[in-house]
Amino acid sequence: MTTSETNVELIGTDLSADLAATALSLARRFNAGATLWVVSPQWEPHAHHVAVEFVHPVIMGKRALPSVSLVEPDPVAQCRVASRPGDVILAVASADQAQVREIMRRAPAWGTDTIWIGSGPRPEPGSANHILWVDSDDPMVPATGRFVLMYHLLWELTHVCFEHPGLLRISDDECADGGCVTCSDEGRLAEVVVAPGNPLDSALVRTAVGEEEVDATLIQDIAPDDLLLIHGGAAIARIDPDEEVR
């Protein structure tokens, strides 16, 4: 897709494929009861705009999709409190936006899928479940309408998926492929809710399947909001603040 005035390709082949895959994933989440939480610390109007689009059906009589913009000063805390396992967090932000990076790191422990829309230098691969990116260093891209075009297409394509109910069912093969967090206990990410009162107590953590208690005797000085790697009901490592989570 290009503009006749500037001959700039707005949505290239790779981004088109990314949009289609993201829309299908998002439709499946909505179909299972998810809420979409939207953050944009740098460009708050984008957060409002995305949320408004999704709660308005593309065609009159079609379903509205639950979407809420989170625009308080601490979006990490907001996402932590608001989201439930199975929800989706969408961020419109540059790759170096610290709060969004932190949300993306913690989202696996909250059990949420993530979508990251932005431009300029890309986030590291695996930083979000879906990355929709404009490969341009022009600082005006967020204000030129290209972001709006992307999330309008995402909104419309998500509704298109609902017109094909067969697409919304996730097969057992898809669930097992790649380590679905509900199907295995291999190195799951957890966020500490309540630290142990003494070295022999368990820690209450938040994981992709909800809150649970884990053995914390291998890790010293655990504190609330720490990110832990858990396996077999025990915390086996702490994730450092600067360490990327894949």
Rank of each mutant, 00 (worst) to 15 (best):
E5H: 01
E5Q: 05
T6D: 05
T6L: 08
V8G: 00
V8P: 00
L10N: 06
S16D: 15
A17N: 06
D18A: 15
L19D: 00
L19P: 03
A20H: 14
A20N: 14
A21F: 02
T22G: 06
A23R: 03
L24V: 11
A27T: 01
A27E: 13
R28Q: 12
N31H: 15
G33T: 02
L36C: 07
P41Y: 02
V50W: 06
V52S: 09
P57W: 01
V58K: 03
M60Q: 05
R63P: 02
P66M: 07
S67Y: 13
L70E: 04
E72W: 02
D74M: 06
Q78R: 07
Q78P: 03
Q78N: 06
C79I: 01
C79H: 04
A82L: 09
S83C: 12
S83R: 05
R84E: 07
G86I: 02
G86K: 00
G86A: 06
I89R: 05
L90Y: 07
A91N: 04
V92R: 11
V92N: 00
A93I: 01
S94T: 15
A95M: 00
A95V: 04
Q97V: 11
R101Y: 09
E102W: 00
R106V: 02
A109P: 02
T112A: 14
I117T: 10
S119A: 14
R122S: 11
P125I: 07
P125K: 13
G126S: 05
G126V: 12
H130V: 03
W133I: 09
W133Y: 08
S136N: 11
P139W: 03
M140E: 09
P142N: 01
G145N: 07
R146Q: 14
F147G: 00
F147V: 03
V148W: 12
V148N: 13
L149G: 13
Y151N: 10
H152M: 14
L153I: 14
L153A: 11
L154G: 00
L154T: 08
H159M: 03
C161Y: 08
G166S: 09
G166D: 15
L167Q: 14
L167T: 06
S171C: 06
D172G: 10
D172H: 12
A176W: 07
G179M: 05
G179C: 02
C180H: 15
S184H: 07
S184D: 10
E186T: 09
G187D: 12
G187V: 06
G187W: 14
L189T: 13
L189V: 13
V192I: 11
V193N: 03
G197C: 03
P199L: 10
L200Y: 10
D201C: 12
S202N: 15
V205A: 05
V205I: 04
V205F: 04
R206P: 02
T207R: 03
V209S: 12
G210Y: 12
E212K: 11
E213P: 03
V214C: 01
V214F: 02
D215F: 04
A216L: 02
T217S: 15
I219Y: 01
Q220H: 11
Q220I: 07
D221G: 06
I222A: 08
D226I: 08
D226F: 14
L227A: 13
L229K: 09
L229N: 04
H231D: 12
G233R: 06
A234I: 07
A234V: 12
A235Y: 05
D242Y: 06
E244R: 15
